[in-house]
Design a protein around this nucleic acid. Structure first.
Length: 886
RNA sequence: GCCCGGGUGGCGGAAUGGCAGACGCGGAGGUCUCAAAAACCUCUACCUUCGGGUGUGUGGGUUCGACUCCCACCCCGGGCACCA
């Protein structure tokens, strides 16, 4: 027997697989198709343990699927545009392409060394003009469909990266890439109008039954749908303002005079002050039911009409100064949720449309600028933020929604007028409750989506002062970047014709290669690139010099894999429709929002463009957990705790590294790396290697079972091995179907243990005659090799081809069959419980009926049953007998 | 604050409401060996007066039976967050 030597076996088989084109997809095959995909890597350097984890899972799924009879598409490529390449180029006075392609070469070699079964003919590299050309084409298609917009607005600017960022790339006010503080700047930028798809992106999450719940939850949070209403508050003209100073701005006195309301006047909410000639400030609210509790009104410091609003008021200068200061607060500081609130009275009033009350308008820093209308109605009774603000500035808190258990409810439930009660609460009442002091709605149930909310919105709509609306937290996707190493935006700025698209036949707009980034050159300063002619009028014009966010590249690469060499289009629809959606997608949880949301968006747009016949790109999603060091710390160069896959392969071989990664735990959980695990897997593979050799050595031996010798033991263990063979195939099949790689491997170990027991118990000098012994050994050996083939593909193929002497590769073999009947034992051990406590264990026939099992069980616990009456007995076949006795 | 996960031996982790701790690591002892390595074997949750008792974050509940289901709480990880 040759010793197991992964360093000899692995490179040899990798070459054999490559030369035979084992993993090249055959588009003409009539097998059912399966698309197995892992998120493509960014070529940042050599691979790390996170890559090993991700791509090993994908490779096991791909290899297992092939053996299950699928025609499997399993491609690999690189997400090759991005800032690190540019920084490296500046540092080394070279070109980003060099750094990128060098790293791709390194990674490709490592992936091959890991034995991953990719179809390398389909590789997509995002910075290849043959790929990014079609990213530009898709940009133009989005433009044609009205989904591209260029607009000026406050954007996130990262100074260290020298570019703007999408909302999704700002984490707690910091840049996702370099962690430096993000500033707000007013800039004209390019957007993809993802908000047009907000509703569908949210609603279709329900279709994604193969996605982890937390990812769907994160996307739903990010989209952030709120159903409510826009309500118009009419501005009281300055001339009619009755109380000009901030200090008297409360609704005067303790008792507000009774207001007219439908119960008295017979009409809907008073539309007082909503004449068309009056200026209106609109607010968005999900709690229209609390309108009667509105005691002030707030606009944010960024509110557009602020200057006009305060023009001519006594406090104009102070208000503008306050707003200016508030705007300067950094995003990082603002990201802290429980900041102290600050505000100032504007001197103006608006009219509450439900009751005609005039309420003071404040400017405060707790109003979010780009959500809703940038203005809110304040109901301190029902909203904690308004409550805090009211307390700080001594503004009225009018109880209008209460729990029925509240003593105050008894006092107020029949209150006719409007008592401005300064309640002694310590916090707002945010829950559902019953309305009081709310005109005709008093006594109705209030809360989000409550009857009172519906009734009040309906009345506002009837009166023309309100409208049902849905707001989303999702913002449009800012796709332009002020960087070189990205996909150029195919647009031209013509002084005559404005901003015009680059004609399709002129694609791709190529990145100039002769650029000196180290000297500070940019696309904008590169004359050869920036200067062009207008495709409409032919006059001199400037090229757009922003590039696209790299996430635009990763939003459709999985479609390109289906038709990677197409020179006429991004892809042929029939090819993509034949493979997609991706059956199993695997990647890191950090893309729960960014990449996965953008990809879903692209899919829906291209579907609407008639290019795709499916709604969602990824049917099943597996988000792998991070690989951490033994102490649960993230591996990083600065901490010096990085485990190198390359070193592990050198020491133990790729198969052992793969097995170790799979065995560490469930794929979606964090994995704590332990240095002992790879050698122990090497040990296990060695054991399999020897066992298969041993079994094959016995396979030709038709004298295996000698009834003259200790036949009972040998026969018993042979039968146990056979049962285990069937049971384990069932278990492994089930586990692979559910991506439970760790327990699949554990089950394979159990089979090897059964085989080892069998082999050990048969001393070499036993010569036995049996018809079935040899074939059983051969069958078990083949089965074991097939089961382990997806996990340790090199060793399995070597055993298959040389030790088992089979032709072809094990990776083309059908997955082993199993017979559940044969997995059953004749006799099983069951537990005997007394009132749920295990008291004994007995052997019974596997098919024992209840009477037999219970009788045997009683015998086993006879002593403990003495003097007791049996109340109940439960028999779970193959498991236990539970006797309840008093 | 809201929304997801999770809490099981010394460690990683197993358990369709049915014998908790599969499988592996580590540890102890042994076989083989001149010796070591490798390989193989046995043991390995805790307490115990050796009868048994206790154990899956805590406290209740449902059930013949709960790691699993329900209620309340504690702790850890993640996401969202002055989003009206």
């Amino acid at each position: 027997m040759k010793a197991y030597d992964p360093h000899e076996i692995e490179p040899r088989l990798q070459l054999q697989w490559q030369e035979s084109g084992l993993y090249t997809v055959d588009e003409t095959s009539d097998k059912p198709r399966k698309y197995v995909l892992e998120m493509f890597p960014y070529p940042s350097g050599d691979i790390h343990m996170g890559h090993v984890s991700n791509y090993t899972y994908g490779d096991v799924v791909a290899r297992y699927s092939r053996m299950r009879g699928f025609n499997v598409l399993h491609p690999m490529g690189w997400d090759a545009f991005g800032l690190p390449a540019e920084n490296a180029a500046i540092k080394h006075h070279s070109h980003p392409a060099k750094w990128t392609y060098d790293n791709i070469d390194t990674q490709r070699a490592s992936f091959k060394r890991m034995g991953y079964s990719y179809d390398w003919d389909r590789t997509v590299v995002a910075c290849d003009p043959e790929y990014y050309r079609w990213g530009q084409w898709i940009f133009l298609e989005f433009w044609r469909r009205g989904l591209v917009e260029r607009r000026n607005s406050p954007v996130n600017w990262c100074d260290d990266c020298g570019t703007v960022l999408a909302n999704e790339q700002v984490i707690d006010g910091r840049c996702w890439r370099c962690d430096s503080e993000v500033q707000k700047r007013d800039l004209t930028q390019w957007y993809y109008k993802i908000t047009d798809y907000a509703e569908e992106l949210l609603a279709d999450l329900d279709q994604l039954t193969g996605w982890p719940e937390n990812v769907k939850q994160q996307q739903a949070n990010w989209i952030g749908k709120s159903e409510g209403a826009n309500v118009d508050f009419a501005l009281v003209p300055l001339a009619e303002t009755r109380s000009p100073l901030a200090s008297d701005c409360e609704i005067g006195g303790d008792v507000v005079p009774p207001i007219s309301c439908p119960a008295e006047s017979g009409s809907g909410p008073q539309a007082s002050g909503t004449n068309s000639d009056r200026e209106v400030i609109t607010v968005f609210t999900t709690r229209a039911d609390t309108l009667f509790g509105c005691s002030f009104f707030v606009v944010g410091p960024e509110y557009e009409g602020l200057a006009a609003l305060v023009a001519g008021t006594p406090n104009e200068a102070d208000v503008l100064a306050f707003a200016e200061e508030a705007r300067k607060v950094s995003a990082v500081e603002r990201a802290q949720g429980d900041r102290e609130k600050h505000g100032i009275f504007t001197g103006r009033y608006v009219v509450n449309p439900v009751n005609g009350e005039q309420v003071p308008v404040w400017v405060a820093d707790y109003v979010v600028a780009d959500y809703g209308t940038g203005a809110v109605m304040a109901v301190p009774c029902g909203d904690q933020r308004d409550f805090d603000f009211a307390r700080k500035y001594d503004l009225p808190i009018i109880p209008i929604i209460l729990s029925e258990d509240d003593p105050l409810y008894e006092q107020l439930k029949d209150q006719q007028g409007r008592v401005v009660t300064q309640v002694d609460w310590t916090e707002a009442y945010g829950a559902e409750g019953v309305l009081v002091q709310s005109g005709p709605y008093t006594g109705m149930k209030g809360g989000k989506h409550s009857p009172a909310e519906a009734a009040i919105v309906a009345a506002l709509e009837a009166a023309g002062t309100g409208k049902r609306t849905t707001e989303y937290r999702l913002r449009d996707w800012l796709i332009s970047r002020q960087r070189y190493w990205g996909n150029p935006i195919p647009a031209i700025h013509c002084p005559q014709c404005g901003v015009v698209p680059v004609p399709e036949e002129d694609l791709p707009v190529r990145l100039p290669e002769d650029i000196d980034l180290a000297a500070g050159e940019t696309l904008a300063t590169h004359a050869g690139f920036a200067n062009t002619t207008c495709p409409v009028c032919g006059g001199p014009a400037k090229r757009e010099t922003d590039t696209m966010d790299t996430f635009t590249c990763s939003s459709w690469y999985y479609m390109r894999y289906c038709d990677p060499h197409n020179v006429h289009a991004p892809f042929a629809s029939d090819r993509v429709n034949a493979w997609m959606p991706v059956d199993q997608y695997i990647g890191g949880i950090e893309h729960a929002i960014l990449h996965l949301l953008y990809s879903r968006f692209f899919t829906k747009v291209l579907r609407d463009a008639g290019m795709l016949d499916f709604d969602e790109p990824f049917t099943n999603l597996l988000c792998q957990g991070m690989v951490l060091d033994a102490h649960g710390e993230v591996m990083s160069k600065s901490k010096g705790n990085v485990v190198s896959p390359e070193e592990m392969i050198q020491d133990y071989g790729a198969d052992a590294v793969r097995a170790a990664m799979l065995f560490m735990g469930p794929p979606d959980k964090e994995k704590l790396w332990n240095d002992d695990i790879v050698p122990s897997m090497m040990k296990f593979l060695n054991r399999v290697w020897r066992i298969v050799h041993d079994l094959v050595g016995k396979a030709g031996d038709d004298t295996l079972f000698d009834p003259q010798a200790d036949a009972s033991d040998v026969h018993t263990l042979a039968m146990a091995m056979k049962r285990e063979r069937h049971r384990v195939v069932g278990k492994v099949t089930d586990d692979f179907d559910r991506n439970n790689f760790n327990t699949a491997l554990a089950a394979i170990m159990e089979l090897t243990n059964a085989v080892a027991s069998f082999l050990r118990l048969r001393p070499a000098d036993h010569r036995m005659a049996c018809q079935t012994g040899g074939p059983l050994c051969q069958d078990v050996a083949e089965t074991l090799v097939k089961l382990i083939a997806p996990i340790a593909p090199h060793m399995a193929d070597e055993l298959w081809q040389t030790v088992l002497g089979q032709s072809g590769s094990v990776h083309e073999q059908p997955w082993p069959e199993y017979d559940p009947e044969q997995a059953k034992a004749d006799e099983v051990e069951i537990a005997v419980q007394l009132s749920g406590k295990v008291k004994a264990r007995i052997m019974v026939a596997a098919d024992a009926d209840e009477d037999a099992a219970v009788a045997a069980a009683k015998e086993a616990v006879e002593a403990q049953l003495a003097g007791k009456t049996i109340v109940k007995q439960i028999y779970v076949p193959g498991r236990l007998v539970n006797i309840v006795a008093k």
